[in-house]
Design a protein around this nucleic acid. Structure first.
Length: 370
DNA sequence: TACTCGTGGTG
DNA sequence: TCACCAAGAGT
């Protein structure tokens, strides 16, 4: 079967089965000439980097409600953008999002460039996102290759060589499928197929529109593709955070540096996470710190973290060596990344400021909290 | 090139 | 329970 036939099968399937997504102009509307807003396409693609549709949906709705266009976003303060991004992860995306918005306003008159090279020059936009915006928003015949497409192609052509080395070959094969007509719908169809039919664990080959030409299906074990090189085991790191609350209810927080984990986000002052014993750190203010019996457990992409939590009530005249106070009524846990949110939840429940009221030196329960 | 960078769902 | 994985980019 020739590749134009494969694309035709895919587009026919997409016409009937395209998912309704807040940032998407569906195939019927697209056929009437309605084009998606490049701003919304860009925003969705940044949010969707390594992130599921389910996780993105709410964030996308809140962002577009608050910042309906690129000018509104470009004019916003960085701290507000970071707070709205909190919980979505990969926080460099949020910092680059704002940089990109300001660059588009300053250098492109508030309009996204419509070609791959110019898009690639913008912060936070890499090869995938540049191709996706060019294809979806501007109908450029770009080949869009994400994790879904790599999986679909590896199965369709029964390619057994492992990722990541086989990426160039997968891209080459994907390019042979890219049509001159409806390249944006084709790209979205490939990704929808990968997300709903050609799934990682248990692909629904029985209802797949590409079952006929699929070499992987014919070979008998499409679920085993694509192959991957084995990954390194995750180490476990330890650290300590200090959750201090002043007598007037204000919380002691700090803005984390732009480099490193949770860069640019609000968090509780604490130790580095490198040292196995979390030794050699000092509290951010003088007080009677109380070590909670429970710990926070959290898993990142490349390591596990066990976080000890120290809590204290700080005097009204406290002079912390790090961070700043945020008034109780201004503090929103939702502005924190998930790890710091977990630590706050534990302190609020078990610490002196919460109604749990664990006694100093008499931890309530052993064990850890996830 | 290979490593860093979050989070939540899934089997 | 836990490894795997997701519409990757930056360095």
């Amino acid at each position: 079967m020739c590749n134009s036939r494969i694309s035709a099968l895919l587009l026919a399937w997409y016409d009937d089965h395209a998912r309704t997504l807040p940032w998407r102009v569906g195939p019927a509307a697209r056929a009437k000439g309605i084009r998606p807003d490049p701003y919304r396409v860009w925003l969705s693609e940044i949010m969707l980097q390594q992130t599921t549709v389910a996780a993105v949906r709410g964030y996308f709705e809140r962002f577009t409600a608050r910042w309906p266009d690129i000018h509104a976003l470009a004019a916003e303060q960085e701290g507000e953008v970071m707070a709205q991004w909190a919980g979505l992860g990969y926080y460099a995306r949020a910092r680059n999002l704002l940089k990109c918005a300001r660059m588009v306003v300053r250098d492109h008159g508030g309009r996204f460039p419509d070609d791959h090279a110019a898009l690639l020059a913008l912060p936070g936009i890499g090869p995938y996102t540049a191709a996706a915006i060019a294809a979806i928003a501007f109908d450029r015949p770009e080949t869009v290759v994400d994790g879904n497409v790599e999986r679909v192609i590896a199965r369709l052509f029964d390619i057994h060589a492992p990722l990541p080395g086989v990426k160039p070959l997968l891209r080459e094969r994907a390019a042979t499928l890219t049509p001159q007509q409806r390249p944006g719908d084709h790209a979205q169809a490939m990704m929808d197929l990968g997300a709903t039919i050609c799934t990682p664990r248990a692909p629904a080959c029985g209802i797949c529109p590409l079952r006929g030409p699929c070499a992987g299906f014919r070979a008998g074990d499409p679920a085993s593709l694509p192959r991957r090189l084995p990954k390194r085991a995750k180490p476990t790191r330890r650290g300590t955070v200090y959750i201090g609350r002043r007598e007037d209810g204000a919380w002691l927080l700090e803005r984390r540096g732009e480099n490193g984990m949770l860069g640019g986000m609000l968090g509780w002052p604490g130790s580095d996470w490198d040292d196995p014993e979390a030794a050699g750190h000092v509290p951010p203010a003088a007080a009677e710190w109380q070590l909670l019996a429970e710990e926070v457990r959290h898993s990142f992409t490349h390591f596990h973290l066990i976080l000890a939590v120290q809590v204290a009530t700080l005097p009204a005249d406290a002079r912390p060596t790090r961070g700043f106070f945020v008034a109780g009524e201004d503090f929103r846990p939702a502005d924190l990344p998930t790890l710091m949110r977990k630590a706050h939840a534990l302190a609020d429940e078990k610490g002196p400021a919460g109604n749990g009221g664990a006694k100093v030196g008499q931890p309530e329960t052993a064990g850890a909290r996830r």
